[in-house]
Design a protein around this nucleic acid. Sequence first.
DNA 1: AATCCTCATTGGAACCATTCTAATCTGTTG
DNA 2: CAACAGATTAGAATGGTTCCAATGAGGATT
Lengths: 143, 143
Amino acid sequence: MSKDRPYSALVQRLKSAGLRPTRQRLALAKLLFEAPGGCDRHITAEQLHAEAVADNVRVSLATIYNSLHQFTEAGLLREVVVESGRSYFDTNVSDHHHFYYEDSGRLQDIPGELVQLESLPTPPDGARVARVDVIIRLNEAGE
Amino acid sequence: MSKDRPYSALVQRLKSAGLRPTRQRLALAKLLFEAPGGCDRHITAEQLHAEAVADNVRVSLATIYNSLHQFTEAGLLREVVVESGRSYFDTNVSDHHHFYYEDSGRLQDIPGELVQLESLPTPPDGARVARVDVIIRLNEAGE
DNA sequence: AATCCTCATTGGAACCATTCTAATCTGTTG
DNA sequence: CAACAGATTAGAATGGTTCCAATGAGGATT
């Protein structure tokens, strides 16, 4: 019941990520990581901006983009690319993959264990695997 | 040695895809599918346009985009999305996956058999798997 | 709590890939 | 060769994202 320090956990989270806990970053972190329901989110810059505005947080789009990228670099978010022209940011940074509903544009986590790759090909010459993305693209079935 | 009908194979290919074999589509198909070296290509709209211009094919960017999408719908190409803001089109439409060099933006095929998924999760409710994309993101290793 | 420096935020312009539009042209069919 | 559907075109428009120069705010030191 730390009603007097409602942001302390987020402040800590930002600090340990090497980011100054400014008003805007704090407000965005709150929207991203403490959304009611607590579930993992797949959000675009525009969506986050709309949420912030709706929540009376005065923040520019430029700051939204800056923050999303800083959070991503700090490992607080993960960027997911499923269609050109729009980036999703995933609050779930654990090892997992995605369902992508092509019709609606919705993105859904697949628990990491449910997709197992056997035999990753060895990366060529002097390259190192940064990440493996698996996207299962879905259509609405006719029946 | 059908020097007299150098395009007949391509004409056929377009026709069976339900596309009228126009000058532009023929020229683009030639660049895409009969490139010297015969290897599979990962090309952007801008790149293809540049190639066409360099080859003295008079074609607008709008037509490049139209054709790329039509070819894709017809199953002659496959669109690969690895970074937001740019689409690659892959002339290899067989079942396979990709290495993506994040530093250079280069894309490389991985023969289909080299990546095996065990246990695809069952798609939710009334959804059907349209495709599974695996992208292995690579960095240049320091040493 | 005033100062200072660094970094963050801002609105708006700039950017770039892509799509749209309305006019013109071309393949194909009869 | 007439006529129509479909293709192509240049250029404008769009939409997401980034850039920019000016302003504002953390936070360390006094």
